[in-house]
């Protein structure tokens, strides 16, 4: 699904990633853990195609080189990033935004655009699955949403857009236990053999709910250790410094 080879990245002449390698096969769930400033969010941004980074190395998605593919086309090809801080866009109705988004992705895939009725039915269904109050969908996009509502909204978008590679960028940060469970349920119910997940987190807590196949430790822009779920527990006990 995704192959990262010797990825180096810098912004404003500051090196952030220093030769990162990672391979994710279809159906796998990988977790990347690391302390603040280790480059976790940068990795998420680079995978989504955000501008402003100087990059060397290779990024391959479904065998295709991602270099020179702009953000929206990556999204259309099935890469979804759940933002750490979802943006507020005043005046833009959440439902309207989602429908526009879904239809551009469907169009890119060569599928028929979905009409409003079918869309609303889909949203209702997915919102119900996640236990999300669909009222927030008729509000302005993320405007005045609580932290939990914003994150739930990201997961709802993931459900509706049905991507192949999902990157969760510290989706657990600042959430109470109920919201965390809602999000984990959303992710777990989406797991399938043709979908992969990259879960970026600071804390082990999320991994109690989303059980990864692999855990990697990111430090100073490199993966310094990889292992199974137990590695996360070890990290929790010893802290990042000891692993280093």
């Amino acid at each position: 699904m995704l192959e990262i080879i010797n990825l180096k990245a810098s912004i404003n002449k500051r090196d952030i990633l220093n030769g990162l390698n990672l391979k994710i096969n279809p159906g796998e769930v990988h977790a990347i853990m690391g302390p603040n400033g280790s480059g976790k969010s940068t990795l998420a941004n680079i995978l989504s195609g955000k501008n402003g980074y100087k990059i060397t190395g290779d990024l391959k998605y479904k065998g295709e080189n991602l270099k020179d593919i702009p953000v929206e086309q990556r999204a259309q090809k099935g890469i979804f990033l759940a933002f750490q801080y979802p943006l507020e866009i005043p005046g833009v109705n959440t439902n309207n935004f989602l429908k526009t988004s879904l239809n551009t992705i469907r169009k890119a895939k060569g599928e028929k655009e979905i009409d409003t009725l079918a869309f609303l039915k889909l949203v209702k269904e997915k919102a119900k699955e996640l236990g999300i109050d669909e009222k927030i969908l008729s509000r302005q996009l993320n405007v005045g949403f609580s932290g939990g509502e914003k994150k739930k909204n990201e997961i709802l978008q993931m459900k509706i857009l049905d991507p192949n590679l999902v990157i969760l960028d510290e989706t657990d940060s600042g959430l109470d236990i109920d919201a965390l469970k809602t999000i984990a349920d959303g992710v777990n119910s989406s797991r399938s053999k043709d979908k992969s997940f990259l879960v970026i987190t600071h804390y082990q807590r999320l991994l109690d709910y989303i059980k990864p196949d692999f855990v990697h430790v990111l430090s100073s822009g490199k993966i310094i250790k990889s292992g199974s779920r137990e590695l996360a527990l070890e990290l929790e006990k010893k802290g990042y410094k000891k692993i280093n």
Binding site: S48, G49, K50, N51, P70, V71, E72, R74, A75, Q76, F80, L81, F83, P86, L87, I89, F97, L98, T100, S101, T104, I105, A108, Q157, L161
Partner: peptide, 15 residues
């Protein structure tokens, strides 16, 4: 950042 967020959801610049 707003533009980036919309792009990430598949919308092109003009959309």
């Amino acid at each position: 950042e707003q533009l980036y967020y919309c792009n990430q959801r598949g919308l092109n610049q003009e959309e």
